[in-house]
């Protein structure tokens, strides 16, 4: 992802902006990945990696899951597996579903406004 052709800010500032953007979206992406049913941490990570480029460090996803659960947006249960490692499955609570819908609506509106705002810039950049 390179939007830095006009490149005034130093590369560090670009990295920071991108990291913040990814982190900000991670919460919505996690709620989204649980929309169709329960999943455990590694499954969520795999789906995020497959469908988005959001995960920078895997270690950020588990603390976020733990906070979303503490906020009452997710609930979790331990399931023993044949392979020996227990898995902690997460699912959306009704509150989590409402929050995900609300966030998705906001996201769509926000993204289309920004796209509109950036349209002249992108034409000019070519």
């Amino acid at each position: 992802m390179t939007i830095t052709k006009h490149g005034e800010p130093p590369p560090d500032a670009d990295d920071k902006w991108e990291t913040q953007l990814r982190k900000g979206c991670l919460e919505l992406a996690i709620l989204g990945s649980l929309w169709t049913g329960r999943r455990y941490g590694l499954e969520i990570l795999r789906s995020l990696k497959r469908e988005s480029e959001l995960v920078v460090s895997e270690g950020t996803v588990y603390p976020l899951l733990s906070r979303l659960r503490a906020d009452g947006l997710l609930e979790s249960e331990w399931v023993e597996t044949e392979s020996g490692h227990p898995r902690k499955y997460y699912r959306l609570t009704p509150r989590g579903r409402r929050r995900a819908t609300q966030m998705a609506r906001l996201w769509t509106r926000f993204a289309s406004n920004i796209a509109e705002l950036l349209a002249p810039l992108q034409k000019g950049g070519r």
């Binding site: 455990y40 941490g41 590694l42 460090s57 895997e58 588990y62 902690k88």
Partner: peptide
């Protein structure tokens, strides 16, 4: 927390990722 992360590491190692890489990806 430790139980969950242990499960994560074990499962990734079992599916063939070298341990070093698994721990590195976690941070």
């Amino acid at each position: 927390i430790l139980r969950e992360l242990r499960g994560h590491v074990e499962e990734r190692v079992q599916s063939g990722t070298p341990l070093r890489e698994v721990l590195q990806a976690l941070g």
